[in-house]
């Protein structure tokens, strides 16, 4: 795990052997200069990104554990065994199910809320636009750890959330200790924390909706809902898909909320794939952890590819 790249050395100083070779000499010189510019990045990126990426892939086919760190030669090649262990592990299957739940419910919900906010902010209101935008975006910039402290407090059985619910006659659950309600609470937090980013992206997309077309439709007697579904939404389609891709890459990696709020509990009901992987790392099961992380990587790549295809098809 040492070598990074064997890039051409910058021997720069050597004088040209003769000006005759003209353009080919200049091209070689340019290539050297270019790689010299790229060198610091390539070195850091190679060591801290590419090498781990490849070792992780290699590790997923071995029985590497934390004990082998000092003596990597004792590691054995086990083929696909880690992957078959993984798919036979009920906890991993549970984590896939949980991640699916989070993604399938969380993405449409976040997108709907963000779209609603963007449309409202774009509906011709003039005052306090900046205040609203800053307000809705604030959760995005704050640390998940700080957020977790206050949300854990808010979600207590007799906390702020249930006090509000009680005021409208609803008996709130013990959110974080209920196998039914812990995940909805995670989704609620994720919507709150991510709607700002999508709102900004959708707001930018809404600037492409033609005002003339909307006006013409109104003259022709289309009501607000018809104008929204027939003109605004189709124009926004690429932006919506982009939002979906960004969200799914993020939501599939769902980790921090359960890590700081529930530790994956109760009874694994908020354990995500990333969290499962992290736990295996903690147990020293490096081979299994790597296999699980690659399953996640493939899922993300496939979903993004699928969404990009959908995005391209009608453009």
């Amino acid at each position: 795990m040492t070598a990074t790249t064997s890039r051409p050395r910058v021997a720069g100083a050597g004088r040209p052997g003769g000006q005759r070779t003209g353009s080919s000499y200049r091209r070689r010189r340019q290539a050297l200069i270019a790689w010299a510019f790229a060198l610091p990045f390539v070195a850091l990126f190679g060591v801290f990104m590419l090498v781990p990426l490849i070792s992780s892939f290699a590790m997923s086919f071995t029985d590497f554990t934390s004990r082998d760190v000092q003596n990597p030669l004792s590691v054995g090649f086990v083929g696909l065994e880690q992957y078959s262990r993984l798919f036979a592990n009920p906890q991993f299957l549970r984590s896939m199910l949980n991640t699916g739940y989070f993604v399938v419910v969380g993405i449409p919900l976040t997108m709907a809320v963000a779209l609603g906010l963007a449309v409202a902010l774009n509906s011709g209101i003039k005052r306090f636009r900046t205040v609203f935008r800053v307000g809705f975006y604030t959760p995005v910039v704050t640390s998940i750890v700080a957020i977790a402290v206050v949300w854990r407090f808010i979600l207590q059985p007799d906390g702020l959330m249930n006090t509000f619910l009680g005021a409208v006659g609803i008996q709130g659950p013990d959110w974080l200790n209920s196998t039914t309600w812990a995940m909805p609470a995670m989704i609620l937090m994720a919507v709150w924390r991510n709607m700002g980013t999508l709102m900004i992206i959708f707001l930018a997309g809404l600037q492409n909706v033609s005002a003339e077309m909307l006006e013409a439709a109104e003259v022709d007697g289309a009501n607000a809902w018809q104008r929204f579904t027939r003109i605004t939404l189709p124009t926004l389609r690429p932006t919506l898909l982009l939002g979906a891709v960004l969200l799914s890459v993020g939501y599939l990696q769902f980790f921090e909320e359960p890590f700081v709020m529930t530790k994956g509990g109760p009874l694994d009901s908020t354990l995500s794939i990333s969290f499962f992987t992290f736990n295996q790392f903690g147990f020293g099961q490096y081979g299994l952890a790597s296999a699980a992380s690659y399953v996640l990587f493939v899922a993300i790549a496939l979903l993004s590819l699928f969404q990009f295809r959908a995005l391209r098809s009608k453009d």
Partner: peptide, 27 residues
């Protein structure tokens, strides 16, 4: 600038934008 390996370098960089954090975490 033009140099051999340019397209490859860019491709690699773009692909890693999608790599989840847990993949590189252990190594």
């Amino acid at each position: 600038m033009d140099f051999p390996g340019k397209k490859f370098l860019f491709l690699i960089v773009m692909v890693t934008l999608m790599v989840p954090g847990v993949v590189t975490f252990v190594p």
